[in-house]
């Protein structure tokens, strides 16, 4: 009887207030800090990612795309990287992700690009979006240019 009363008292008084806890896992951490964007160039006929750590920070997808369209740096070229995208191409804009798709507006007709060049653009956009925290898998990239937009394309490296 006495022990029961003591137990109730301990429960009533001990359960009051805010109790300290052990560390508790709670959700996904932020993603986004990186030495630089991942750019997809071609080496030995295959897509090959390069981390462009020039600025020491990630930057925006548009910046990354601009860097991609400007081609590899001399050091990257020396390492065997090249771009399949014709040089006078400039990205106009990269839209935010909407319904699992990003729309990239280019200053040339996407139809004029080779499949490898398209993969380069798509994979770079997907990689940067992933670096910014989005899910890479299933993220579609719709290229628009001077002609009408085509179907969404997917990065083979993110499958």
């Amino acid at each position: 009887m006495r022990w029961c009363a003591l137990l109730v008292l301990v429960l009533v008084l001990g359960g009051c207030g805010i109790q300290p806890t052990d560390p508790v896992f709670a959700g996904e951490p932020p993603v986004g800090a990186a030495p630089g964007p991942i750019l997809f160039f071609v080496r030995d006929g295959h897509l090959d990612p390069v981390v462009r750590a020039e600025n020491g920070r990630l930057g925006s997808p548009a910046d990354a795309l601009t860097a991609l369209l400007n081609g590899p740096t001399p050091a990257e070229s020396a390492a065997g990287y090249y771009s399949a995208i014709p040089l006078p191409a400039a990205a106009v804009s990269v839209s935010p992700i909407r319904l699992g798709e990003v729309t990239v507006a280019l200053s040339l007709a996407p139809a004029a690009l080779s499949p490898t060049a398209i993969d380069q653009v798509v994979c770079t956009v997907v990689a940067v979006e992933a670096q910014l925290g989005a899910g890479a898998r299933g993220l579609g990239v719709r290229l628009t240019g001077i002609d009408a937009s085509g179907p969404p394309r997917y990065c083979p490296a993110a499958r």
């Binding site: 805010i18 896992f25 959700g27 951490p29 993603v31 992933a130």
Partner: peptide
């Protein structure tokens, strides 16, 4: 891989400490 929180007792005051790592994505996504 996770945001982590812990409640501690800081000299009688209940305090919430939240810690989180900042992640990035490697070339293999």
């Amino acid at each position: 891989g996770h945001v982590v929180f812990q409640r501690i007792d800081y000299y009688g005051t209940p305090v919430l400490v939240v810690g989180m790592p900042v992640l990035t994505v490697d070339a293999g996504f």
